[in-house]
Design a protein around this nucleic acid. Structure first.
Lengths: 241, 241
DNA sequence: CGGTACCTTGACGAGCATCAAACCCTGTGG
DNA sequence: CCACAGGGTTTGATGCTCGTCAAGGTACCG
């Protein structure tokens, strides 16, 4: 089990720096660690989760299920993500989270939220910040799904996924990142059918722009991809809890 | 100028109740009031707003602009909404806000955020809660835009707008609410073209399900509309600041 | 009156969904 | 060792939804 001061995520610039006191507070809130296997549901829509998690390792999907069984992937889950905050401040979870790969999680009890707000205004602020970052990411996705064509959406998503993976040190020397999701996950995230998603990915591959296959993503012509995506904005820096 | 204890929004069940101390804290943070005309931009994407606003009266749209000029309406703005929080916790505004009608706003200085976190854990919690509610609303919209047909999306949006208007007391006896937006706004919110939005609204009208015309919305067959929308969930209760 | 902003309606075609089938893998059991 | 099943990917054929283009209607305003 990691001590917070040795947290493997600290070293990435993507995360906001924090003070000695903040580390100690986080440490004192930490209830333990947990490992789950690929495919395991972690949080369920409608449930009232007593726990909060910070992802230390692994990836997953955050999704909403409609009454008729359709699924909207709201966001992909990466290391550093803080899960369950919505359930903690609102009544219940508004979405589900499922592990795509094996995951390592840092576990907090829901009750520590109050401890955080009471003992550290800075960390309370950070919780709001985390929620704001999530809203921003969802709003960006909404913009892409609402306004762009299939090719643009897929390009946007691949670029975003690549950047997020890089931000937590997952890129190898050749500029390849692991991307263990199914094409169906991407389709459900971007509001496209599986078939059309597949054909669009094939086009990006044959045009030598990006290649996502065998669970690995490589950007071959990043400029072209960013052009299609309509943006190549830097990721927002964000706090880590 | 209203005293917070006489805030016209308190009385609605939609908002979380709060204590005497919370009212006093809010009052001590309030910098003043402001009125703006219909059509005025209130917050601009990319800007670093020094102010936060609570909407007392009026409506607006919150939208993101793409490089090529396309527009995604992220949410509609109603009384009780707290604007500018994202700019306050992140570096800058990630979207713009424009008044659709004349608006009355309660104004706070950005600096009071720290005062709130320091002096009241409960109100700090509420700020996170507000951000979480916003994320939830955007995620719901993403689900609709990503998974539903035009008829379903428009139905979902009308029902949601109706419920939000009712929650702040805008319905008259006949079950009609004011809805001063343009069809283009709804189209940009739901990822549809103006023409198709218009035809879809016409269909709902001729099928005697819902009638939005002349800036007024009436639900004629609410059950049918909810059926098309896929849901008629209650609005999340939320804090008011 | 001409101009602008918004709503409405029809015709046409493209983008994407749907259907169907085949092709991988990998794991499992006879 | 091979048959088989299951999960995921790939590809082709077909057609519906929805975007685009175009034009006209109405109200309001200078």
């Amino acid at each position: 089990m990691y001590m917070c001061k040795n947290c493997p995520l600290h070293r990435f610039d993507y995360f906001d720096e924090f003070s000695q006191e903040e580390i100690e507070l986080t440490q004192s809130c930490k209830a333990g660690e947990m490992r789950i296997e690929a495919g395991t549901p972690l949080l369920a829509q409608g449930a009232k989760s007593p726990q909060l998690f910070t992802v230390l390792k692994g990836m997953g999907v955050r999704y909403r299920t409609l009454e008729d069984g359709q699924r909207q992937v709201v966001n992909f889950v990466f290391p550093g993500d803080f899960l369950g905050l919505q359930a903690a401040v609102m009544e219940e979870m508004k979405h589900s989270v499922e592990a795509t790969t094996d995951m390592h999680l840092c576990v907090f009890d829901r009750k520590v939220l109050w401890k955080i707000y009471r003992s550290s205004p800075e960390r309370g602020f950070d919780l709001t910040w985390l929620a704001a970052v999530e809203e921003h990411m969802v709003a960006e996705a909404l913009t892409s799904v609402g306004q762009q064509t299939a090719l643009e959406r897929i390009s946007w998503a691949l670029l975003r996924l690549y950047n997020r993976a890089c931000a937590v040190g997952l890129a190898d020397n050749a500029g390849v990142v692991p991307l263990p999701f199914r094409q169906q996950d991407l389709a459900d995230a971007m509001g496209l059918s599986l078939v059309h998603t597949n054909k669009t990915l094939a086009k990006l591959r044959s045009d030598n722009i990006a290649d996502w296959s065998d669970g690995r993503l490589q950007l071959i012509d990043r400029a072209k991809l960013a052009d299609l995506a309509g943006t190549d904005a830097d990721l927002e820096k964000r706090p880590l809890i």
